[in-house]
Computed example of a mutant assay.
Amino acid sequence: MAQQVSYFSPGPAKIPHEVLGQLQEELVHYKGTPVSVMELSHRSKDFGNIIDATEKVVRELLGVPDNYRVLLMHGGGTGQFAAVPLNLMSRTGKADYIVTGSWSSKAAQEAAKYGTVNCVLPKSERYTGVPDRSCWKLDPEASYVYYCDNETVEGVEFQSVPDVPEGVPLVCDVSSNYFTRPIDVSKFGLLYGGAQKNIGCAGVTLVIVREDLITNPLPVCPTVLDYTVMAKNKSLYNTPPTFPIHVMGEVLAWVKKEGGVKEMERRSVEKSRMIYSIVDESNGFYSSVVTPSSRSRVNVVFRVGEDGGNEELETKFVDQATQCGLLSLKGHRSVGGIRASLYNAITVDDVHRLAEFMKKFLQENKV
C-alpha cells in the first residue's frame, strides 16, 4: 500500500484530489469531444463555455459587483507588480505601498520604475506583523494604495481591510489567500492573485478591477498587461492560458460544492489553530516571531529549537517529516525555519497528521 502523503507546498500547491481525477480524464477527451482540453481552440464554443463558467463562479463565490471586470491574465503575481502601476499610476503619478513582507517590497520596487512610490510604513529589517495604523503615512493624492493581504514568506496576514483616504483606490495582492475567506470586493479598486496556491495551477492570474480604473494606462504599458485591452476582448486578445483557466474553474466549482468561501474560512481557522496551539504550548521548543494578531491562517511559519531556532534540528525535522509523508515543509531561504502552507486543498486530516508529528518530534528532541 502506498504511503499517505500530505503536501504542504507554498506554491505551486496541492489541487483537490477529485479535481485532479476529473482533469486526468479530460486530458485525452474533453466532454465527448475528440480532443484534449489542452488542445481546445481559445476561439471555440467549448472553450467559450469554460471561460464563461469560470467567470461566473468567481462572481458568485465573491459576490463581485456588476461594475467590476474579471480578467484572466498571463504573468503571475509578478506580472501584476508592473501591470498595476502601468494601468493606474497615471492618475497622479504617485502611489502608496504598505510594505509588510517580501512580496509587497518587490511590488514597490517594480512600481518605482513607473512613478513615485511612498512607503507607508517605516522601513523594517524584519517583517513580524502589520504595524499599528497610527504609524502609517498615507498620501491623499496617491493614485492608489497597495498592499499584500498575506505574505507567504514571513507568514504575515492582514486581519481586516485597511482604511485609506476617501477617493483613493485600494489595490490588493491576494495571491495566497484568494477564496480562503469572504471579501467585500466593493472596498477595492483592484484585487489580483496567481492561481497556483488556492485556486488552480500556475499559468493564470485572476484580476478583478473596477471599470472606472481601466481607461488610462501609461503609454509604455505593454498590450498584454493593458487592462483596457484585456477587458474589451474579454481576456481573449491573444491566446490565454487555456488549461490553467479550466483548472481554476474546476477548483472553484469544488470550493462552491464544499460550502463556499465561508466554509473555506472555517477550515482555515481550524487548521491554523491546530498548529499554532502546538507552537504556543511547546515552552519555546517551537516559536514564531509573527505578532499573534498578524499570524497567517494559510502560511504557518515557525522555528524549531530553543533560543529562536536550531538549523540542525530544523533539518532533522524536515527530513523526518518527509519520511512520514509530510512534504515541502522547509521554510523560505530568506527566513529559514519551517513553513506549513495550509491552502484550501489541504484537509483537516492532513494538518492533524502534521500536528501529531510535531508533538512526537517535541517529545523526542526537547532538552
Rank of each mutant, 00 (worst) to 15 (best):
P12M: 10
V153G: 03
A82I: 01
S134I: 00
L342T: 11
T116S: 13
L191M: 07
R210T: 03
L138V: 04
H17E: 12
Y343G: 15
S44C: 13
H17K: 13
P140H: 03
N150Q: 04
Y7M: 10
K256W: 00
F8Y: 09
N49G: 03
G32N: 01
F188K: 12
S41R: 01
V185I: 13
Q159G: 12
S160T: 06
L342N: 01
G77E: 11
T152F: 10
R126T: 07
R126Y: 11
E314K: 06
I183R: 03
V35T: 10
G11H: 01
E110M: 14
M264T: 09
K359W: 08
R59P: 07
S90K: 12
K234V: 10
N238R: 12
Y192T: 11
T347V: 04
I214A: 08
E265M: 13
V304N: 09
S272A: 14
T322P: 05
G155F: 11
S9Q: 07
S186I: 02
V251R: 08
A108V: 09
L20V: 09
I208D: 11
K262A: 08
I98M: 15
R59V: 10
Y286W: 10
V351R: 04
P12A: 15
F317G: 10
G337I: 12
K360V: 11
V304E: 02
I183K: 04
F158K: 03
G63F: 06
G200P: 14
G21D: 11
G284W: 02
T291D: 15
N177M: 13
C221A: 12
L86R: 09
N118P: 01
L86C: 10
T291H: 15
S160I: 00
K359Y: 06
D139W: 07
Q3N: 10
G203Q: 05
K106N: 13
L313I: 08
T54E: 01
Y7E: 05
Y114T: 08
L326H: 07
T33D: 00
G193P: 08
L354F: 05
N87K: 04
H352W: 08
N344D: 03
L72E: 02
S186C: 12
I51S: 00
Y97A: 14
R69D: 12
Q159D: 13
F357H: 05
A82W: 04
S36V: 02
K232Q: 12
N365K: 11
F179T: 09
S90H: 08
P122I: 00
V300S: 04
K359S: 06
F47V: 00
V290P: 05
G115T: 02
A13S: 14
Q80T: 08
V220N: 09
